[in-house]
Write a protein that binds this DNA or RNA. Structure first.
Length: 919
RNA sequence: GCGGGGGUGGCUGAGCCUGGCCAAAAGCGGCGGACUUAAGAUCCGCUCCCGUAGGGGUUCGAGGGUUCAAAUCCCUUCUCCCGCACCA
């Protein structure tokens, strides 16, 4: 690097030390309602990767921004410290998960500090400490008391490689692979602990509509996951087996049910397998629930259709899933594609009972004899839409929806039923490194909750074994029953780590509290999290479980919030050449290297200005270098002028207070002042929206303008330049905090290298206020457009007219009466605009000119919009005149139309000055 | 299949909700110029077509429609991406 580099290492170190010494990011317990900004806490895997850096730069930038705006901010960090990788790593390295985890935490914490993330480390939480996980246990017992915990024998997803059970959510794709190690998942029957999240299924689903601060994609994914369906539950009597429950959403098609199907693991199927060799062979060998082809075997039994009394054949079929509905279904080949395929294969009758709704037009034509529905041809393909019933006896002619209601009412034992795809949450894991489930198994009393006073149940020392280390910890396992005092054994399963993360935002509120998981009163004040940021991979699991926990805590613990996260941002990926960075692809860019080479500020700024936070973007070394150069130039610019600025007026320049510059005295300074306001107005709005990329572009643009000013003018006004630099530095401060602090101190005449203490205590951006803009965005937009259009017009004229070397350029701003006329035209709804205009004396006086302009206005009537007023346009153009002079190397005169010759002024309109160029 | 989000100038990508200063931001790439011994960096322009005074023409996946006016609203259609899925 060259003359433009700056000593990022020294600067970053200096300010990181300063912040730490000043405890700058501490949020005291007594603040009323801080803005709660949270990034998803990381799993301490060893090193920070780019995804982390992006995630936490977003939250840090937003937290810093809110702080500069004067908010109290809560911005904590912690560790999702339980989990399988620690166990595997411990085995590999012959250590234990605890030491390995804490090593990782130390490393990552150091990296976070070197990135300059401003966390309240006094609130740090680490889920693998008894201080934290005791509350998982406590919550488990509370859930139990409220009837939200269940122990049942369940077929579970078992990963043979991880030797543990997985939640449904942790099984990926059609191939059913373990989310961690991609091993095909097997099924096992085990006694498992479940949290009854299904009790909250309706609320979890319905409340999604109100999560307006969440991305639609995530909301939709949760809706799908919960998968609520309304239908009918009814029973078919299967000969020899009594009533068998089936669920259907299409009871209107029941007259077309031509067979009945059972899942291979349905109790009846299993019973049949014992005596029927064909059924057994099918279940054991042929059934392939993952295959595309529906397969099945006839049982020889029949089921009685509860409506028609008809006896239909019963099959065991592999496309029937025991987890869906009741594991048994009435099949209607005519109106269901899957049933149709199966019926075709087995030669089962396909009987249409729904016809398309006759078209309204047809109905009218055939009015007299009532439009007969046309029975669809279902031999080739099923007709799956709703329609009108046919071949359905007394129900003929009803529309599907009405028929469903009527049939559900009429059929004996049938009832409306709701099905969910959401299952209860199995939290048992046969692993060591997690929260021990606080249960004791007594031969006499059965499973007994560990009493609150005996919590936490702490993990024993790690034992390196192939199975579950807790099972091998004999001494630990042996205990007495809390109820009868007899000998008993501890539960050896631990909890899914998603339990830990389901309530951790609450723990930050009172991380050291010993009486409860969280301070209720403060949590009520501080929650919910105002802005949550993390990866889309948690769209369902973590975010759904957290919502569930929050609702339970609201119902039973007095929490006054039912949702944990008000606004959610799912950040995009950091890619390299369009591909996700991953170790296996070997295309990983190390944040550490970037920080060492360019500094944390460069890394942060590059990431934030590269793209909107929710978008994927490509890492580019070139982009990083150019960002680094930008910071170098900014630093040099401040350095060059700092002394003059500080000397001129430390109070004014440093604080960025309004500077009084008139266009008359110093048009260029006025232009710069306007641009400072413009940048502040826009960047502020963009920071509010978390569109850092736009905000930062504005800040960078401002620096460019300031540099042009300093270069173009012989002696730039230190007050003007100082105000601009001070604003620019603060606009960048959320993203490049170290350099911002350094430069802010310099602008106030301090030398942080000589006098770090006072620079820290007096100069910090942290203590400064966000810059204020003297204009609104709309004015900025109009002003910039005017200047830009005018410059472009001059260029065009010069170009089209072939003017080689302009002698002088006159810019004539329209007379006030035209602005008045424009305003009247916009407000007016009169047919004859000219008449209305001529009613104004001062316009009528203009004679032909007024009539001509009136006609123009009339012609574009609907498209008119208000510009700045004449004097504002005049000022803006005067201030910008230097840009034109600089470009064409010719003097530019900006005048009002009143002060110039009529023939030129005639062309001037609001928003569009007349231009006259002398060759 | 169901649900969600897209298709914009050489590329990336804003705009679309709330129609009109939108031939359409910004960045990249390309071209020209300034600076420099030179390169790099930086700065100033240009980058759909035509045009000797700011003009005109044709564009925003395709086709229709609404409107004085459509990239923006409506309908149809093609296509890409993401999530879920033998879901009863």
């Amino acid at each position: 690097m060259t003359d433009e580099g700056y000593d990022h290492a020294a600067i970053e170190r200096r300010w990181q030390d300063a912040w730490e010494a000043a405890n700058a990011y501490r949020t005291p317990d007594d603040v009323a309602d801080p803005t709660y900004v949270l990034g998803m806490y990381p799993y301490p895997s060893g090193k920070l990767h780019m995804g982390h850096v992006r995630n936490y730069t977003i939250t840090d930038a937003y937290a810093r921004y809110r702080r500069l705006r004067g908010d109290d901010v809560l911005h904590p960090m912690g560790w999702d410290a339980f989990g399988l990788p620690a166990e595997n790593a411990a085995k590999e390295r012959d250590t234990n998960p605890r030491d390995w985890t804490f090593d990782c935490i130390e490393t990552m914490k150091g990296q976070m500090k070197s990135m300059g993330f401003g966390y309240d480390w006094d609130r740090e939480i680490t889920t693998c400490t008894p201080d934290y996980y005791r509350w998982n246990q406590w919550l488990f017992t509370r859930f139990h008391e409220e009837g939200l915990v269940e122990r049942r024998d369940a077929a579970v997803n078992w990963c043979p490689s991880c030797e543990t059970v997985l939640a449904d959510e942790q099984v990926e794709g059609e191939a059913e692979l373990c989310w961690r190690c991609d091993t095909p998942v097997e099924t096992r029957d085990l006694e498992q602990w479940f949290l009854k999240i299904t009790e909250y299924a309706d609320e979890l689903l319905d409340a999604i509509d109100d999560l307006e601060g969440w991305p639609n994609s995530v909301r939709q994914m949760q809706r799908n996951w919960i998968g609520r369906q309304y239908g009918t539950e009814l029973s078919f009597e299967v000969e020899g087996h009594g009533d068998v429950e089936a669920f259907t959403t299409r009871v209107d098609t029941i007259h077309g049910a031509t067979f009945f199907a059972l899942a291979p693991d349905h109790p009846i199927s299993e019973e049949l397998a014992e005596t029927d060799a064909d059924v057994r062979r099918f279940i054991e060998e042929e059934a392939d629930p993952d295959g595309d082809e529906p397969n099945g075997v006839e049982t020889g039994l029949t089921a009685e259709n509860p409506v028609t009394g008809e006896a239909i054949p019963v099959y065991v079929a592999d496309f029937v899933l025991s987890e869906v509905g009741t594991g048994a279904l009435m099949a209607v080949p005519a109106h269901d594609e899957r049933d149709h395929a199966f019926a075709e294969k087995k030669g089962i009758e396909i009987r249409p009972v729904i016809a398309p709704e006759p078209k309204a037009a047809d109905a009218e034509e055939a009015d007299a004899e009532e439009a007969e529905p046309t029975i669809p041809d279902v031999e080739e393909a099923a007709f799956t839409d709703d329609g009108v019933l046919v071949n359905s006896g007394e129900y003929d002619g009803l529309d599907s929806e009405t028929a469903r209601e009527r049939l559900t009412e009429d059929i004996d034992g049938a009832s409306e039923a709701t099905q969910y795809q959401l299952r209860d949450w199995g939290i048992s894991r046969q692993r060591y490194w997690g929260t021990p489930i606080p249960v004791v198994h007594c031969p006499d009393c059965g499973p007994v909750m560990v009493p609150e006073d005996d919590l936490p149940v702490e993990l024993p020392e790690f034992i390196n074994t192939t199975g579950n280390p807790l099972d091998a910890a004999e001494e630990w396992k042996e205990t007495t029953c809390p109820e009868c005092g007899g000998p008993a054994e501890r539960e050896t399963d631990t909890m899914d780590t998603f339990v830990d993360s389901s309530w951790y935002p609450l723990r930050y509120v009172s991380p050291d509290l010993e009486e409860a998981p969280f301070d209720l009163e403060r949590a009520n004040d501080w929650m919910p999290v105002d802005q949550y940021v993390g990866g889309i991979e948690h769209a369902v699991m973590h975010l759904l479980y957290s919502r569930f926990f929050t609702k339970v805590l609201a119902d039973h613990e007095g929490l006054e919030h039912r949702e944990p996260f008000e606004n959610l941002l799912a950040q995009g990926m950091v890619q390299l050449e369009g591909e996700k960075m991953s170790k296996s692809k070997g295309n990983v860019v190390s944040p550490q290297r970037i920080v060492e080479e360019y500094g944390a500020d460069t890394a942060r700024l590059f990431m934030m200005q590269a793209a909107q936070p929710e978008r994927d973007f490509d890492w580019s070394e070139e982009g990083v270098r150019s960002t680094n150069r930008f910071l170098g130039r900014l630093q040099a610019l401040v350095e060059e002028h700092a002394d003059a600025i500080a000397a001129a007026d430390a109070a004014t320049a440093g604080s960025g207070a309004a500077v009084d510059v008139s266009v008359e005295d110093d048009p260029i300074a006025a232009y710069v002042t306007d641009e400072v306001d413009a940048a502040v107005a826009i960047a502020t709005a963009e920071y509010d929206d978390l569109t850092f990329n736009v905000a930062l572009r504005e800040a960078q643009e401002l620096v460019r303008t300031l540099r042009s000013y300093a270069d173009y003018v012989d002696d730039p006004d230190p007050a003007v330049l100082g105000r601009g630099l001070s604003a620019a530095v603060r606009l960048l401060a959320p993203v490049t905090p170290h350099l911002a602090e350094e430069l802010y101190a310099r602008l106030q005449g301090m030398d942080p290298t000589d006098d770090p203490e006072s620079a820290v205590t007096e100069g910090v951006v942290l203590a400064a206020a966000w810059p204020e803009a003297a204009v609104d965005r709309e004015t900025v937009r109009k002003r910039r457009r005017l200047v830009e259009n005018t410059r472009e017009d001059v260029r065009q004229i010069v170009d089209v007219a072939g003017i080689e070397d302009p002698e002088s350029i006159d810019v004539v701003v329209a007379p006030d009466w035209k602005y008045d006329a424009l305003e009247i035209a916009i407000d007016s709804d009169a047919d004859n605009l000219i008449g209305e205009l001529m009613a104004e004396d001062h316009i009528r006086e203009r004679g032909d000119a007024a009539a001509a302009y009136g006609q123009d206005l009339q012609a574009e009537r609907e498209a008119l919009s208000m510009t700045l007023r004449g004097d504002a346009e005049y000022e803006a153009l005067r201030a910008a005149a230097w840009l034109i002079e600089r470009e064409f190397d010719a003097p530019v005169t900006v005048v009002r139309a009143e002060a110039t010759a009529d023939d030129v002024a005639r062309n001037a309109e609001p928003g569009r000055p007349a231009i006259d160029i002398e060759e």
